[in-house]
Design a protein around this nucleic acid. Structure first.
Lengths: 189, 189, 189, 189
DNA sequence: TATGAATGAGGTTTCATTCAT
DNA sequence: GATGAATGAAACCTCATTCAT
């Protein structure tokens, strides 16, 4: 039941946004009552926090697995990009909630989530730094800014990509790792 | 007065989101009354539409100027990227409202804005297509997807970039055009 | 367990009032669940009635003991006043619940409690009447109104008196019996 | 309208208590809507605070007038007692709300009201002190405790006295000033 | 142009109570 | 005896909107 509530509310938050989704909307889709909702969640914000925590903790765990497994910096980066893009398929557009609605968490909760987001981002920065040092990546890159650029490429996909369209998630991941690694300019031979 | 209302409400929408910002919030920061708001705007949604229209029309106008002026495909692309990033400074984080709150427009209005967004995006796609054909850009790129990637890089900046920080908007624009054009992999010499 | 529920709920009713205290509040302080509460009490009102009944029945029993024991009218009155004031120490501020929350009983239950209250008060009135007749008390007193005045002196103590302060319950009882008997005017010698 | 809301809600608070009176109850008796209530009052608690403030400020003002006018300590005391008892007639049983519902104010507001209550009480204490010093009142009285006893006599009247009964407010005031001044014991001649 | 008062729908939350286990 | 989940009514409050002035 709690799981159902999380599932339904996430879908509704994706579709209509957190503020525009009422508790009534959520419980109506499940045919239960508001009282039931408040038995499982202290507040609407608590539900949002729950969603955020599950998402980022899961992301961090899988990121860690990649860092521990992959050998090259390039391999690590590619796998992390794939991780983010594949999530569009497995998690629905949950990422949209994750980035859009953090403002509706209490300051304390928002701070916690932001710290975990920062951790995820810093892990990518570290890949960049190490890759530059090792000569795998270009020298004149600023790791922090390039990390934001890479996250932009992946996260923006949540806004528009339809995994059931003509292009598969795997195709998109390939295309984007290629773009990130090589840019768009034709090499002069 | 109308301009003040637009300015204040945009700031509040950036900060708290459209749904979470009440008309009362808006008029309170200006020291006027709600009646006054409704003299200038038919509804809250009309204000949001106004904001969207001003933003996208301005963007399209400036994009058109670039397309008419720049000669190379590469030059056109670089200038459009710069246009988007420089907006963070001149327009504040208005872009955040623009992408986040379209959901709260009426279906008709949302369709109009989406059409204009599409136009803006297609103009970039056309640059890509032409650039590929001309050999300026790599052959095996999919213009549509690469356009989304580029928009991801620029638009994501609205989420985190502080133009008053140590890195200037111009620096960021340079760095990102370089990233888009060349990727991150060190060339093997 | 039932005793614990009564004890905790009385404390909470004293502190926050009957309406403002939820069943959840009560069971939380005991670490049990609501189902458990409803095993012991038919309803929240039944608990309140239980508290009222225990209190007034106990008071009546002890008042009766005094009436049977003391010889003089003055002695009876003094002992009843002492009874009421000493209760602040032994019963906590239960008296506050007793007077404040009768409104939340069902009409039938409220009537029963009011009848018992009336009995307690009439017993004091009878002391007054007999004392006046016997010449122990002043002639021109109206027993009913003076009884209310005396109850005012004692019951009001529940509002402010702290038995752990510098003045003991016994001191207060002495002082108030003296006040009731002699008033405040200095006798002209 | 605001005045109407205060009037109706005070009556309902007297009758059913603050917690048990809903905003709906209040507005229904006036045939207006909840929105209207919240236009005039920020919250239910703000209304309660309004009622408390009006009551105690008025009481303090009238007490001050008495202190400035009356010459003897005895006269001052008698007039203050009359002031309190006459209020039952002019203010309805508002005093019941005043003493019973303070717990529903926010801590800050409750502190303010308690401070003003304290001021009122201290003014009576000062009469007692001065009266004792001047030999008008008995030497062995503790001003603070006697003040509470006097307030008990008067305030308790709010609980039971019906000004439309056989005994008038003036009669009660006479009777109680006599009781306070002379006690109940028959003087031995 | 602007205000102040009012509306009514709907928002989040609380709560006494029930009941299968 | 006790629990945990659920209910449904009702609580407080917010808000976009209207309108006479």
């Amino acid at each position: 039941m709690k799981a159902d509530l999380i599932k339904q509310s996430t879908d509704l938050f994706v579709e209509k946004g957190f503020s525009a989704t009422s508790i009534q909307d959520i419980v109506d889709t499940l045919g239960v009552t508001k009282g039931s909702f408040y038995y499982h969640f202290k507040s609407k914000e608590a539900l949002l926090m729950d969603i955020h925590l599950r998402y980022i903790d899961d992301l961090l765990k899988r990121q860690k697995a990649i860092l521990d497994t992959e050998q090259t910096h390039r391999g690590k980066l590619v796998k992390v990009v794939e991780l983010l893009i594949h999530d569009i398929e497995t998690q629905g557009a949950l990422g949209r909630v994750y980035y859009r609605e953090i403002r509706h968490l209490t300051p304390e909760n928002a701070a916690l989530i932001k710290a975990k987001r920062g951790e995820f981002r810093e892990n990518i920065e570290k890949i960049m730094e190490a890759g530059i040092k090792a000569g795998e990546f270009r020298e004149n890159l600023q790791p922090k800014m390039i990390t934001f650029a890479i996250l932009g490429v992946t996260n923006w996909s949540y806004q528009w990509f339809n995994p059931e369209g003509v292009l598969s998630v795997a195709d998109l991941a390939d295309m984007y790792t290629d773009f990130i690694l090589n840019g768009i300019v034709a090499s002069e031979k």
